[in-house]
Design a protein around this nucleic acid. Sequence first.
DNA 1: TGCAATATGTGCGATAAACGCACTAATCAT
DNA 2: ATGATTAGTGCGTTTATCGCACATATTGCA
Lengths: 248, 248
Amino acid sequence: MTQKNNASTFAKGLRVLSCFETGRRDLTMAEISRLTGFDRATARRLCLTLEDNGYLQKEDRVFRLTPKILAVAGGYLTSNDFGRAVQPILNRFAEEFEGEIALAMRDGDRAIYVARSAISSARVSIGFSVGSTLPLLPTAVGQMLLARGLDNELDKDLSRLNLEKLTEATDMNLASIRSKIEQAAVQGYAYVRNEFEMGAAGIAVPIGNIGASPAVLATTASINQFDKTDEFDRALDVLRRAAMSLRI
Amino acid sequence: MTQKNNASTFAKGLRVLSCFETGRRDLTMAEISRLTGFDRATARRLCLTLEDNGYLQKEDRVFRLTPKILAVAGGYLTSNDFGRAVQPILNRFAEEFEGEIALAMRDGDRAIYVARSAISSARVSIGFSVGSTLPLLPTAVGQMLLARGLDNELDKDLSRLNLEKLTEATDMNLASIRSKIEQAAVQGYAYVRNEFEMGAAGIAVPIGNIGASPAVLATTASINQFDKTDEFDRALDVLRRAAMSLRI
DNA sequence: TGCAATATGTGCGATAAACGCACTAATCAT
DNA sequence: ATGATTAGTGCGTTTATCGCACATATTGCA
């Protein structure tokens, strides 16, 4: 039934488009053919179609994205009122906190940053920006998102998601991860240290749904910073008050 | 030859996706069928494919975008180093200027905002954000972009682009518009007043290419503000210095 | 320079998918 | 209630897609 009423050529084209997600700037048709597993001729037709429709441009033999995709992304952001309702609140609390605050949602088996505070005093940003993706299991953002799902879905998620050892500290024990997620659901926040990147820690708190999907607010800092109890408490407090402010 | 080597079903699917560009939040299948001109059954297959692939979600009978599209858009932004190289510069000059600065590029027959300054002291933003689109003819951004094209393309552009009277002041004379564009090319900036929105004026200056496509920096303010010579000069100066800073 | 490896362009027959009509069912507006 | 709009579905026809095979072009390296 998954294949009924599904336009397979369109699905393949979308997969070509997603090859450019990760920030891979330039891709040749042969690379796309390999990344997707499609026949060269198929990949070629799809690439040329994307070029014809203005989503890709070809220079020599590589394709790259054009800004056209931003028009669709902007449609998402404005239709959900991020510019007017969300961004100013993130900015305000980030200013007070003197740190980055980001809003993330779930996209399949990963988390995706949807909005991020922009403050003039920002030190060099850690590098997560709108559209960046994160794994669900070894991050505070991901664990809080998993905690917001339904109970019976959590088991399915856990059995499907693949564990990847990103650092020495990455928890590879599903039962242990499960209890962390359940704990996050109970205490209303997730805190994960070192599991995604050594020396980094993240805090995430839940906020209301956006377009029927759960969302979280999160911040990241060095382990050193969040290991000071008062710093941690202040961050959690800011996130919680920001979350209250943007009950959606 | 345009239709050779083109996956028509994929192209149709992309057109469905583009229905969500404008910030239309919710669309039913019937609306999409009408917007695209496709048969209902065709529109249905394409919508379900988009849902299946996580780009749309269905609630009751309407479809809306999911944040997944941001991953692709983020791929564009990061592969062009906007987060690291462009954004801080826009922020810095916007802070000094106490006004918004935006980077725009051309997407077919329209301009599209690609980046925008984010400063905490920003007054209520005028509402243009990343992904917003503008017509080319009645805006400073558009005229500067047209001025950056090749001469022989300008004629083709002018004959193809459709004039639309957006305000009483919108210039509807192609020859007159052409001379404005040529003037912009010569003097290195475009200045347009009232033609897009009464009471608003825009200034745009050229910057280097981004991925082989020309780009401009621009700012908007009220007519009152820019009609003061020193205010105008200061804005133009800021834009020009910002443009120098981010020679790409 | 020359050779091997890789990338790209293209024609075509077999196959599979998309098309769109026609009909039914469900929902909405008044 | 009822007319209008929307959604779901089956199916024969048509058409696009598939993927191989062959030809060409480019690149990288010895």
